[in-house]
Design a protein around this nucleic acid. Structure first.
Lengths: 161, 161
DNA sequence: GAACAATGGGTGTATATACTCCTATCTAGT
DNA sequence: ACTAGATAGGAGTATATACACCCATTGTTC
């Protein structure tokens, strides 16, 4: 380490000038997480009275449509870590909205929605629909569609990488 | 509850036919969270050796650019709950990347980046940049720009609501 | 059929997130 | 100066998320 490297070649702060840092405001990670936060709060608020969170609603919908299904298959479909899904399912299971039972292959755990789960889904659906439509109206249908397409594409391309 | 309401007028499961449920696959909340998950993993992986997560990198960048700044101001700027930010800052403070000190108004806590923080930022910046550029290339620059614009617009419009 | 690889899950740990309720401090109005 | 309201923050609790490491079961190979 010499003392006279005033140039940028060996400067550990290179890229941290105002321009480099301004670039960080476009961070894909930060922006997607920020959007996820604000949207999550909208949906959580809208279905608060039902006792479901937005995340739980999505999980219940997927279980309803795809189930009965093995834990790992559901995790794969939802692009969620297996262990995350297992823990999220514990909450739904505690409230008797889903069942978690051994499969024929005794390594697997089969997830299925219950009648209570279907009722809860029916209860929460109007709240979800209202918020979903509000967001579409707020952005404009075309912009919203474009956004969802691009976001889905991002997910798919990261997955295929 | 009569037994013969086969119509949908009083059916609690109305909207939960396959069409209604299929609509849920376009859930703004689920899709934004899914994207946040996959993108977060890309950035976390890329800077794992630095010991920073994508979230922490973003927090450190904001602190560097905006600091010294009061906790609530920083939370507002980042669109994060105040208590969430405080807890995320604890980790950075423990690693001496930021300081948290009383302000003149003794209700406030002033957040500032340290020299170690700046060094860590410089260390992580190339990892961030590499991943950010990879995502842009993956999607195509125009598509990526369009996505970020739409996502930012969503955030702004929800905020202004 | 016994050894071994592959698969499906569970546990421990750490981080990220936000809500509710509470305390300390400041500010404005009297 | 006193008090009421506003503001800044902290603590407790709950949920969402994923990684590393481990165990049980299944399939495979000789």
């Amino acid at each position: 380490m010499t003392k006279h490297n005033k140039g940028n070649e060996n400067n550990p702060l290179a890229g941290l000038d105002p321009k480099g840092l301004a670039e960080c405001s476009e961070c894909t990670c930060f922006n997607m997480r920020k959007a996820a936060r604000v949207v999550t709060q909208l949906f959580d608020d809208s279905m608060r009275l039902t006792g479901l969170r937005g995340t739980q609603f999505a999980l219940l919908v997927h279980t309803c449509v795809m189930g009965p299904i093995a834990l790992s298959k559901l995790a794969e479909a939802m692009v969620t870590d297996r262990t995350t899904l297992a823990r999220n399912l514990e909450l739904l299971e505690k409230n008797v909205l889903v069942t978690v039972e051994d499969g024929d292959d005794r390594r697997t755990r089969i997830i299925a929605i219950t009648d209570d789960g279907r009722k809860k889904l029916a209860e929460a659906f109007p709240c979800w629909k209202k918020t979903q439509d509000e967001i579409k109206e707020m952005m404009g249908r075309d912009e919203w569609s474009a956004m969802i397409s691009l976001v889905s594409r991002l997910v798919n391309q990261v997955q295929e990488r």
